[in-house]
Nucleic acid binder design. Structure first.
Lengths: 228, 228
DNA sequence: AGAATAGTGTCTCTGAGACAATATCAA
DNA sequence: TTGATATTGTCTCAGAGACACTATTCT
């Protein structure tokens, strides 16, 4: 026996996928091809299928719409958006479970089946576009979460390839936080935190003195944290 | 036109409601009266109704099942649980949006319509009970979130009445974190953080020297944080 | 040589923690 | 007076930030 006014809903998983291109924080957006909100820019995402969890759906949609292979990104749950009027385009209420994904070297975006186009857009610029549904709110929350997480977690390395220099790691912090950090103090801080980064012994040569290469360490949290 | 295998779900809001009784961290549990998982202990909660957001549903269920008036508690979204097999008792898949609620002086629990019994149970003891569905996981996540939030937010005052002493505030931290804190250093720390607590000018007299009374200040975050 | 980037040394300041000392009440 | 709790003082240590300095490459 079903209570008459109990909500029956579709459940969507939407992803705030962030990456760094040319030192600028960018987010993956798709131009909607589905009937609802057709033609508008939106976060990648889609409906959960039967027998699928929200995280599985997020990983699948990220692969289909943005071409980010499953396992290539860390997915972290952001929150769930369930306001009754958040999506008036569908015939049923839709609640959305939002995820944050941080990606390194972005394979060029791929136009998948569900989305018309997919592209990386600077976050600053995306903040001025009108996005479908409440995706502007979700984007803002996602960026803020990423900023906060850099302080007390080792998440920043997710933006980088498996080998990176300390300067590149610093560039992640500077781009996401929008600040300039002292190279000397940053170097001491990250190299002195056990488990954050591990030296490979290799060097990378560029304009000046060659820089030592590192890989991500095993630590998940930063103690004490980096301060913004 | 509906894609054939798109999930259609019921959406529940479940609440990890924590309070302090006799210096012990306790959680509100209900004995289920509904057919699904009848007789088992579970977190308070229930299904979203049409035209209701998850947070509204959480507030309503908290009022109905635990007797905590709407507005008497802060609700913070914990996360969403959507594993396909998390709830096999219902005829449809159920995904649950979990909330964290911190309450002061717990009105005695009220047996509402949906729940058979409701009572406050020490968290340590609840961790050993078999709870319905995946509520054990949700409870663990909620307690961990509360612990983390005390560090960098002013959430601890939510556990107290509108007027409290610094010792009472310290007791919150000691109970939630399960540690002993130095009274002198704690006093300096909280009274020296602008916006955390505001003196009322009143005193409360007990066993020893009377303690000054405070109310919660306007600050939401603690900078620098308290360390566990 | 000069520019550029990597990395180290050093000083100062702030805040956490240990713990002694003082204050103000009840019994 | 004694015991209990509140509050302040003081010392030490760790870490953040400013910034001078050294190291190693390219042009």
């Amino acid at each position: 026996m079903t209570t008459p006014d109990r909500l029956v809903a579709w459940v969507a998983a939407d992803i705030v996928a962030l990456t760094l291109r040319d030192g600028v924080l960018q987010v993956a957006l798709v131009k909607r091809k589905a009937p609802a909100a057709r033609g508008q820019w939106a976060l990648p995402g889609g409906f959960l299928l039967e027998e699928e969890s929200a995280e599985q759906a997020a990983a699948r949609e990220l692969a289909e719409e943005v071409g980010l292979g499953i396992g290539a990104v860390r997915l972290e749950q952001l929150g769930t958006y369930s306001a009754p009027k958040r999506d008036l385009e569908h015939s049923r209420r839709v609640i959305s479970v939002a995820y944050l994904a941080l990606a390194a070297n972005l394979p060029e975006t791929v136009a998948g089946t569900d989305a018309g186009e997919a592209s990386w857009v600077p976050v600053e610029q995306a903040a001025t576009r009108r996005l479908a549904f409440d995706h502007q709110t979700i984007l803002t929350d996602g960026v803020e979460r990423a900023r906060a997480k850099l302080e007390y977690s080792t998440l920043a390395t997710s933006f980088l390839d498996s080998e990176f220099t300390i300067s590149e790691l610093r560039a992640v912090y500077e781009a996401v936080w929008g600040v300039r950090l002292d190279p000397a103090n940053f170097h001491r801080k990250v190299s002195g935190t056990p488990g954050f980064i591990e030296p490979t012994g290799e060097m990378r040569r560029g304009r000046g003195r060659p820089a030592a290469l590192f890989t991500a360490g095993s630590a998940q949290s930063l103690n004490p944290p980096l301060t913004r």
